[in-house]
């Protein structure tokens, strides 16, 4: 029997989510090795395979907003603990650890700035902060970013990434879907443009609210985008999932999003769209 058993030495297991750390990173698609410094300089896109790693929210703002024009808003909002929630650790501890790890107070950075000269109100979600799950602060900051667009008569851009609603804030997280969507109704009725940029992954409660409501919806390549998680769908339906299910490419082919845009081209594309939609916006100073 022992002849066919596994060899005793163990294989080294690498958790995908733990990378990139250290000096170099392996492309999850091709196994290509790339130096972190090079990856950083390339906006976290692997040069050959063009695999898009998550980009930190502040770097995303650098990528999209003209140098020196970004003014951050609502940076001082922090979540309460309305449910006094504890799972493997208390929510307050989980928050503190996430804050220490990321240097951010919650999963959204928002503010105003110029995109190729055009004033915009922008909110960017940061997946490294508790999976960019949406609790009260995320909902509030996105709502304020939308309302700011309404006040200043400028377009609103939200760069989405999220595992969904933040369970630790329970039903209050669910209500952020209503809050953000209601604000978007007002923005839309005022004739102001809203562009949703979907990055890997954008799921569940975020997808079933502001991420799906863009006048234009743009996704980065090969992002996972959907409502229910693929594992849940597989377990519920006992069905094999189609190839590329819930990828950006899948959504584009089903007519659910407008474009797939490479990270390096994103700013140019956004600028063109904003230029086309500027009739209702305030004239740029």
């Amino acid at each position: 029997m022992s002849i066919f058993s596994k060899p005793k030495y163990s294989t080294v297991q690498v958790k995908k989510k733990d990378i990139p750390t250290g000096l170099w990173t392996k492309c999850p698609e091709t196994g290509e090795i790339i130096f972190n410094k090079e990856l950083e300089q390339n906006w976290m896109v692997v040069p050959k395979s063009e695999y898009h790693f998550p980009l930190k929210a502040r770097r995303r703002i650098e990528l999209l907003i003209d140098d020196g024009t970004f003014e951050e808003h609502d940076a001082d909002l922090v979540s309460g603990d309305p449910l006094e929630f504890t799972d493997s650790k208390p929510y307050t501890v989980r928050m503190t650890q996430a804050q220490e790890k990321t240097g951010e107070k919650d999963a959204v950075i928002s503010g105003t700035g110029k995109l190729s000269g055009q004033p915009v109100s922008i909110a960017v979600m940061d997946f490294s902060f508790i999976g960019a799950s949406m609790g009260s602060v995320v909902g509030e900051k996105i709502t304020r970013a939308i309302e700011r667009g309404l006040e200043q008569k400028c377009p609103v851009i939200v760069v989405c990434a999220s595992g969904g609603a933040r369970m630790q804030e329970g039903i209050l997280s669910l209500m952020q879907m209503a809050k953000t969507s209601a604000a978007l109704k007002r923005l839309s009725d005022a004739g102001l443009p809203y562009i949703a940029v979907l990055t890997n992954p954008t799921m569940a409660g975020v997808m079933a609210s502001f991420a799906s409501l863009g006048d234009v919806i743009i996704a980065e390549p090969k992002a996972l985008i959907g409502f229910a998680g693929p594992r849940v769908i597989k377990e519920t339906t006992q069905q094999d999932l189609p190839d590329g299910f819930q990828s950006s490419e899948f959504l584009l082919s089903r007519g659910l999003i407008d474009q797939i845009v490479h990270r390096h081209e994103m700013k140019t594309r956004l600028a063109s769209l904003l230029n086309a939609f500027k009739s209702g916006c305030a004239k740029s100073a």
Binding site: A208, S212, F227, T236
Partner: peptide, 16 residues
């Protein structure tokens, strides 16, 4: 949570 529901965009239906 089904394949068809995702293809016909249940997230958008709820959001709208």
């Amino acid at each position: 949570p089904g394949v068809g529901a995702e293809e016909r965009h249940v997230a958008e239906a709820i959001a709208v």
